[in-house]
C-alpha cells in the first residue's frame, strides 16, 4: 500500500535479503573493514582533507587548533577606535531590544552640564552566562559597535564574573580587523564616518572614558595595578586586543618594539609617582576607583594567549616590554 499522491516510480523498497544464507560472511566483512581502518589510521597519513575518509581525524586541541571562520560567533564585544579611544556604541538600544534572551543592559550617557542625552553609553552590561550567541546584536547594530568575538575559552569558576561590564567588553577596532578582515572591510568606511559624526556630539570625555584607554590618544596600560605590577602591567594589561592583533600582522621584533614603546610611555606617565597608589589616582583612565580593580584583575585572565597565537612569541614580546619599561624608569 502506498499513499496515492506518490507516484510508484518515486518509491523503492529497500532490500532485506531475508532468504540469504548467513554463515558469518557478513561479520567477517565487517571485521575486514575495521582492520583496514586500523591499518590506515596507524600507518597511513592523517585525515587532512574533507574528501578523506581514512586516517586519524582528531585535532590535538590545545596544541593544534582548527581555523576559526570569520563568521564564527561566540560572545558579543564592543569596539572602540584605536586612534581616538572613542567607543563606537551610541546607546541606540537596538541590540537591547532584539536580544532574544534579554541579556543586554544599556544606560545612556548624559551631558553633565545640560543633562541632555549624548550618543554614548554610560553603562553597558552583558550577561555572558545567559547569552545564546545568536549574533542578532551584531546583525542589527547600525553603528557596527557590537561584534561577535572568536574567543571561546571563557570557562571560569567565578560565576558573577560572567556579568561583563563595559570595561571588559571593549576591544579596539584593530583587534576585530584581525579576526574578521573581510567582514570589517565591508563596513569600515561607513562605521568610521558614523563615529566621526557622533564624536562631534559628545562633550568632553564622554564616549571614551571606559576601559583602560587614556584620554587624548593611544590606548595605554591600566596603571591601576599595584606597585610591583605597575611596570609589567604596562606590557601585560592592555594586551586584550592589541597584542594579539599586532602579533598576527607584524613581524616579531616589530611587535616587541611597539610594545616596548607603549610600555615606556606608560611608565613615564606612572613613573612620576613614587608608589602605585598615586598611579591609580593619577591614571585618568579609569572611570571610577571601584571599577579599577575589576578591570585590572580581568586583564591577565583575558583571552590574550587564546586567540590562537603562539605562546612563546607572546611571552617574548612581554619580556621585551617589561625590560623597556624598566629601562625607561631608570632613565628618569
Amino acid at each position: 500500500m502506498t499513499l496515492s499522491h506518490l507516484a510508484t516510480e518515486d518509491v523503492f523498497v529497500v532490500e532485506r535479503n531475508d532468504a540469504d544464507f548467513r554463515g558469518g560472511q557478513g561479520m567477517t566483512k565487517g571485521l575486514g573493514i575495521v582492520f583496514r581502518k586500523f591499518r590506515k589510521a596507524l600507518f597511513g597519513k592523517p585525515n587532512s582533507d574533507r574528501a578523506d575518509t581514512e586516517g586519524q581525524f582528531n585535532v590535538q586541541y590545545p596544541e593544534e587548533r582548527l581555523a576559526i571562520p570569520e563568521a564564527y560567533r561566540n560572545m558579543p564585544i564592543l569596539l572602540y577606535d584605536d586612534a581616538t579611544g572613542h567607543e563606537l556604541c551610541t546607546s541606540c538600544f537596538q541590540c537591547e531590544r532584539i536580544c532574544p534572551p534579554q541579556v543586554i543592559h544599556i544606560t545612556q550617557a548624559k551631558d553633565p552640564a545640560t543633562g541632555k542625552p549624548v550618543p554614548a553609553a554610560a553603562k553597558f552590561v552583558l550577561e555572558y552566562d545567559t547569552c545564546m550567541s545568536c549574533g542578532y546584536c551584531a546583525e542589527v547594530c547600525p553603528f557596527d559597535a557590537i561584534k561577535m568575538d572568536h574567543d571561546f575559552e571563557l570557562s571560569t569558576a567565578n560565576h558573577p564574573e560572567l556579568d561583563v561590564d563595559y570595561n571588559r567588553l571593549l576591544r579596539p577596532v584593530s583587534y576585530y580587523e584581525t579576526i574578521a578582515p573581510t567582514m570589517w572591510s565591508e563596513v569600515k568606511e561607513q562605521a568610521m564616518k558614523k563615529l566621526q559624526n557622533n564624536i562631534k556630539r559628545r562633550p568632553g570625555d564622554i564616549g571614551r572614558d571606559h576601559g583602560q584607554k587614556i584620554k587624548g590618544g593611544a590606548p595605554v596600560a591600566a596603571a591601576a595595578t599595584p606597585a610591583a605590577g605597575a611596570a609589567p602591567a604596562a606590557g601585560a594589561a592592555k594586551p586584550r586586543g592589541p597584542v594579539a592583533a599586532i602579533g598576527k600582522n607584524m613581524s616579531e621584533d616589530k611587535t616587541a618594539k611597539l610594545l616596548a614603546i607603549r610600555a615606556a610611555n606608560a611608565a613615564k606617565r606612572g613613573g612620576g609617582a613614587a608608589d602605585a597608589a598615586p598611579v591609580a589616582q593619577a591614571a585618568p583612565v579609569v572611570e571610577t576607583v571601584a571599577d579599577a580593580p575589576a578591570a585590572a584583575s580581568a586583564a591577565p585572565t583575558g583571552p590574550v594567549a587564546a586567540i590562537g597565537q603562539n605562546m612563546s612569541e607572546d611571552k617574548r614580546a612581554k619580556l621585551e616590554a617589561i625590560r623597556a619599561a624598566k629601562r625607561a624608569q631608570r632613565g628618569e
Binding site: 535479503n17 540469504d20 548467513r22 558469518g24 560472511q25 557478513g26 561479520m27 566483512k29 565487517g30 573493514i33 575495521v34 581502518k37 574533507r50 574528501a51 578523506d52 575518509t53 581514512e54
Partner: peptide, 18 residues
C-alpha cells in the same frame, strides 16, 4: 567525494552482520 566511501564502509561494517 568522500561520502560514498563512508556509505560503503558503514554498510559493509554492519548491514549483513549476523
Amino acid at each position: 567525494q568522500g561520502l560514498p566511501h563512508y556509505f560503503d564502509d558503514f554498510e559493509g561494517l554492519l548491514l549483513n552482520s549476523e
